[in-house]
Design a protein around this nucleic acid. Structure first.
Lengths: 347, 347
DNA sequence: CTGAAAGCGCTTACAG
DNA sequence: CTGAAAGCGCTTACAG
């Protein structure tokens, strides 16, 4: 039998039900309640049950701040992404957040704007909250950032990318081979008979540069590589920029028979520009994108692209982080989630 | 002269520089350091300066958890939005987050999926963190949620909407008149000579229903209202659904001469479907959207729409919240940030 | 204007 | 397996 609960009330000024309220009601010490509730082993199963019952009855909820202060570890997980204006990262965030929340963690988001020192500053701020874990986009960070990650001892998983050398002693990461994906789409276009395949990119972040490398390699292997087919613009990716790039390419290299854009928003913009300019896709020029963002299947013509598993990446990375936070060592430190060529009518 | 600092070291096991380290180094009590650093009045200006100097020298950073525990208030601000897959809310989040971070607050995001009970649950979780403030989308919430907001005493600003009755004793909010915006676009189409103007909507959240009401009112005033011109689909908004709605409308009501979509993604999808089906826009049917989302100006033809100030709303709401958190009372509890008809070639 | 002291609500060695 | 006690790093009445 449980002791009668009706007289149990919080004795704190704040009116909050605390650990000691539960302890008192259950007739055990606060330490035991703490251990029982957190599922620490070495507690009598009968006691665990009693404590849980009382705790539920009282509607006890642990105070995150007190817990963080005492344990030097919060239930926050920090996630650093470059931009919110690229749907890719929003999908990543959404999936990670969902998984983390299911496990009782709060997501602290930071937007780096592709700026290494902003990333460093953000990380510094978030580390103050003693996050239980960290999710960070990409594999390359400035030395200060790397040092912060190391010295903080916070479990960390990197998103979207994999180390070039699979054997390398790289950090935990889940992503796919960007270079391979770039090469695969290029080979796909080659297989469709295209020969003068331009590569058009914006933002020029490390992952874009890997796709560029894949494109180069594939074209070189086919004996079709020309440096003049590279169109690199450091401005942020957008539909509008895609239109601009398309016009530029058609004007400067009218003989081009395909354009591989490093992101779908650019490709979508190019498709719209083609419509506007009366350029027929794919008969006159094929268009391919990257990521299979929302809307790409609705374009006219529908866009050929590389489908990347970003939601899956967000989820798998969160799961890997969860396991690291439990103190486990993942068997596979680098998870390759692959990609898929989606052939539609634009090529 | 400052006391020599070189021998000052943290005496805590954690190695962290604490308030007392600063106090000791500055030769004052911890209470004074606490007050000086937080800019509380009633501290000798000379001391404030000294404390700040020592604190900077030592690289002291306050522990958020300890602060939250002691003060019963964290430096978190919770923000509740319906979806991350609608660019509208991402813009809101981005702007609010930027403003809040500038003021030293961390943003805790919650995604409600337009589900009242999920919203309630999320709020409950976030309240555990004793957020310093709350940003919440919309004006209508279930009774439990309203009660939580009230009893928590957390300052709160509502986003995107305004009370129907401007005189009403409504909570703080910043947004624009959804009903008015719906009516304005409808009048705009009427002024262009359109008479059979359909309204096509998805999601059917409260704001969409207000736009519907505006459309109705405007059509009724012009003597053009027909219930058969309403196409309401509760599914989430997307380009694909826009295409489906477009096909459906053209098939069921071929005489329609304009379609007003409640969100740009639907309208963009309709534009693509028109291309696919060979329906000429705007000569055969005009298309209008809502929000002026990214890409709408790049469509073919470019989309006529209502530009809504979502980034501005996010920022202004964050600023209003900041002022509430300072204990101030905003002169204008309801900020109307307006909207703008953007006339492009699709109508 | 300043300080000593209590307290916020937990966790975690340390004994037993 | 359980408990008493110290401690996490701040804030805030309460005196003075």
């Amino acid at each position: 039998m449980l002791p009668s609960l009706k007289v149990i009330k919080s004795h704190r000024a704040t009116g909050r039900i605390t650990l000691s309220d539960v302890a008192q009601a259950a007739g055990v010490s606060p330490s035991t309640v703490s251990r029982a509730l957190r599922g620490e082993r070495a507690v009598d199963p009968a006691l665990i049950e009693r404590v849980q019952a009382v705790s539920a009855k009282l509607g006890y909820v642990p105070d995150p701040a007190a817990r963080a202060l005492a344990s030097q570890r919060s239930n926050h997980v920090a996630i650093l992404i470059p931009l919110l204006s690229n749907a890719l990262f929003v999908d990543l965030l959404d999936a990670a957040q969902k998984t983390l929340r299911g496990a009782g963690y709060q997501t602290l988001m930071g937007v780096t704007h592709y700026d290494a020192s902003e990333e460093e500053q953000l990380l510094r701020e978030q580390l103050l909250h003693r996050p239980a874990g960290l999710l960070i986009t990409g594999l390359d960070h400035n030395p200060a950032t790397r040092k912060l990650m190391q010295s903080s001892q916070v479990p960390c998983v990197h998103l979207m990318d994999l180390p070039a050398d699979p054997q390398a002693l790289a950090p935990y990461c889940v992503g796919f081979r960007q270079t391979e994906a770039g090469a695969a789409m290029t080979r796909h276009l080659l297989a469709q008979g295209r020969r003068r395949i331009a590569f058009a990119a914006a933002q020029l972040d490390p992952r874009v540069m890997q796709r560029l490398k894949g494109w180069r390699t594939a074209l070189q292997a086919a004996g079709c590589y020309l440096p003049t087919l590279e169109f690199l613009n450091p401005a942020p990716s957008s539909l509008a920029l895609g239109g601009v790039l398309f016009e530029q390419i058609m004007q400067q290299r009218p003989a081009v028979d395909a354009i591989f854009f490093c992101n779908d928003d650019l490709a979508q913009g190019a498709l719209m520009a083609a419509l506007r300019l009366g350029v027929d896709v794919p008969s006159q020029v094929a268009i391919a994108g990257f990521n299979d963002l929302t809307g790409s299947d609705q374009m006219w013509p529908p866009l050929t692209t590389v489908r990347t598993p970003r939601a899956h990446i967000g989820q798998a990375a969160a799961e890997m982080l969860l396991s690291l936070m439990r103190g486990e060592t993942p068997e596979v430190p680098h998870r390759d989630l692959g990609f898929e060529i989606v052939q539609r009518q634009s090529s």
